[in-house]
Nucleic acid binder design. Structure first.
Length: 260
DNA sequence: AATTCACGCAACCGCTGTTCG
DNA sequence: GCGAACAGCGGTTGCGTGAAT
């Protein structure tokens, strides 16, 4: 579950903490406090860096730290605070006594992010939020789970909403049909598109890719229809997950529920 | 039974803001 | 006012575990 202990080139111990180390750290802080994390490991007789000691203390050793499963109330609060505050885990942690920012962050990424997404998608679904059926799951297609060629097709569709000539150009350039040439063709077309508009290129790495048809009225989301493998899909942009592909059924649900 | 895959989580890393000399 | 040191934060990684094949 955790990284195996090892000594780095500076002689600092890394990886999982032993019981003995925990005892030393806890005993030292309970006696002397932690005014200087950098000096603390030396004084406490540990071969750790200050950062590592601080993290261990904050997440596991400090008094009143709560372990184990999150309650429904805690989860609801995290979802609400995340909606209001964004990824300010340290601030969120102050509202959940006994929970560390790291623990909340991990719990969000492994459990709540998906749940929050589905809650928005199926707001009135007979309180079966943790028991989504396979049918429901099939309505969401995460870009990162798609194969390269799928991604290339989606990228193409997005590009084609900006320039009608792009798709034709790429398809012509990739008549050999291999995925490599297909990808190269997409990259080539994409590069030329970007270099033709230096203003938008400046923001390329920091802003989500949005076509010129993107409307400010939809702050985070925009609709782009894509025929992917005979399934009519739509896409929207999510700050956490990037581009999300959904089929027309889910898109309708999301529109109906006010998510979009 | 063996292997592969996905998930969960503890811990690390790098960046930013704050404090101090 | 400036730079160094430090603390804290958020993103990412590594690996154990259980489920799926």
């Amino acid at each position: 579950m955790v990284r195996a202990p090892y000594i780095d080139k500076n002689g600092t111990k890394k990886g999982a903490w032993s019981e003995d180390e925990d005892c030393k750290l806890k005993a030292y802080i309970e006696t002397y406090g932690h005014r200087n994390w950098r000096e603390l490991p030396k004084l406490a007789g540990l071969s750790r860096c200050g950062k590592s000691c601080r993290l261990r203390w904050v997440n596991y050793l400090r008094p009143n730290v709560k372990r184990g499963n999150f309650t429904k109330d805690e989860e609801d609060l995290i979802i609400k605070l995340h909606k209001d505050l964004g990824r300010k885990w340290a601030v969120i942690a102050t509202k959940l006594p006994g929970r560390s920012d790291n623990e909340i962050k991990n719990h969000w990424h492994t459990h709540l992010r998906k749940r929050a997404q589905h809650n928005y998608s199926y707001p009135q679904k007979e309180s079966s939020q943790n028991h989504e059926s396979d049918e429901e799951k099939s309505h969401v297609i995460k870009l990162s789970n798609l194969k390269e060629k799928d991604e290339a097709e989606i990228l193409l569709a997005m590009l084609s909403s900006t320039t009608q000539s792009t798709e034709a150009n790429v398809k012509q350039a990739s008549t050999s049909g291999t995925s490599d040439s297909y990808g190269e063709a997409v990259n080539s077309e994409y590069s030329s598109l970007l270099s033709s508009n230096n203003d938008s290129f400046n923001d390329f790495w920091t802003q989500p890719f949005l076509p010129d048809t993107y409307s400010n009225a939809h702050d985070d989301y925009y609709k782009s229809s894509i025929d992917l493998h005979n399934q009519n899909c739509f896409s929207y942009y999510d700050h956490d997950d990037g581009f999300i592909m959904v089929d027309d059924f889910l898109w309708s649900s999301m529109e109906f529920s006010g998510f979009l």
